[in-house]
Nucleic acid binder design. Structure first.
Lengths: 193, 193
DNA sequence: ATCATAACATACCGTTCGGTACAATATGAA
DNA sequence: TTCATATTGTACCGAACGGTATGTTATGAT
């Protein structure tokens, strides 16, 4: 009964996410978005609402898929120590490999928007809490299997590892020597015992 | 021989620093700056150069005084463990006390500008490296006094604590329960032994 | 084939952006 | 007191901002 949509909503949202991830909210203009998404301005507004709604949708997409990815990676090793070591190693390698490293979209948003917009304060907090739960479950698996000490405080340890993950992700934005990060994480991971 | 300046360069720079610290680079407009600094636009340009130069000057002022403050705090306790515990505790308390917490100006800049501007990549990296040296010296003092184990790798441990400091500072922007941060830091500080 | 309708492209809205030209003002050396 | 000069306030610059009105185009149910 009417003209059919010519773009794939998933694809243009993915493009918007990449752009916001690279440049942040303020530094990304509507012109940047139309260029990258390959659609016109009114199409953005009719499909996603205004700039901030689009940003929120993009961020939700990111956090959902990122959490699933992390969960999968941690479940991919029988050894919990090895699972965390590999995971951190891959996070580090990803930043040092790609020429342009964007870090974590959620962390970027925590810094840029959470302090001035409660919606993003909540959204970013809940993502971190969810990651902490994933970490905690992994640690508990290690306790159950006997790999980790029975007395381990799984929750506190998970929270410490989340803080380390955030810290290393941010620190890498200043491109320190890789040994700095490697040392820091190796030391932190000795908490798993 | 000419009209005398009517404002205190130090004071208006301090005001600019506070504003950039609160809002970041992009989100702070020249109008915001003139309002907060209490001087007119041409005075900013003739005294500090353009917006980015002013930002850099403000950030340098921040990092210098912040490093001196941290060094002093860590030297203020004979016990190294207690020095770090108190220091982290104060960082946490500062964020939960003030209604508007700005976190760390340097960390904010690492996230917003370092990935897109080499000048700030270098500036922020060197600040973190300097803080790591301060941490390392403190840890070495603890080794020397016998408070910490002789085998302690002071450098790696210092780097791990810097990563934790960054992580907690960023994490607090999402206003998690205080117990999350307290647990994480308590666990991380068990690395001091 | 007609036509109501939704997506399209274009062109524009008022506002705000970073930055500056310019004239008025105040100063101290002469 | 005069005058060269640096600082001030105002008013403006073109460009870019987020957002929208409007007319054109393509669609599928009738």
């Amino acid at each position: 009964m009417a003209r059919t949509r010519e773009f794939d909503e998933e694809k243009v949202l993915e493009a918007a996410m990449q752009l916001f991830w690279e440049k942040g909210y303020e530094a990304t203009s509507l012109s940047d978005l139309t260029a990258r998404m390959g659609i016109q301005r009114p199409s953005i507004y009719s499909t996603f609402g205004d700039k901030k709604e689009l940003f929120e949708t993009a961020l939700r997409r990111y956090t959902t898929s990122r959490a699933a990815e992390i969960r999968a990676r941690l479940q991919g090793h029988s050894s919990v120590k090895q699972a965390f070591a590999k995971f951190f190693e891959e996070v580090i390698a990803a930043e040092y490999t790609k020429d342009l490293s964007n870090g974590c979209f959620c962390i970027n948003t925590m810094v840029e928007l959470a302090p001035h917009d409660e919606r993003f304060e909540i959204l970013t907090r809940e993502h971190q809490l969810y990651l902490a739960v994933i970490f905690q479950e992994t640690i508990e698996r290690g306790i159950q299997s006997g790999e980790l000490e029975k007395e381990t405080d799984a929750k506190s340890l998970a929270q410490a590892l989340i803080v380390a993950l955030i810290g290393l992700t941010v620190m890498m934005k200043s491109q320190p020597q890789k040994s700095f990060i490697d040392n820091a994480i190796a030391t932190t991971l000795t908490l798993l015992k």
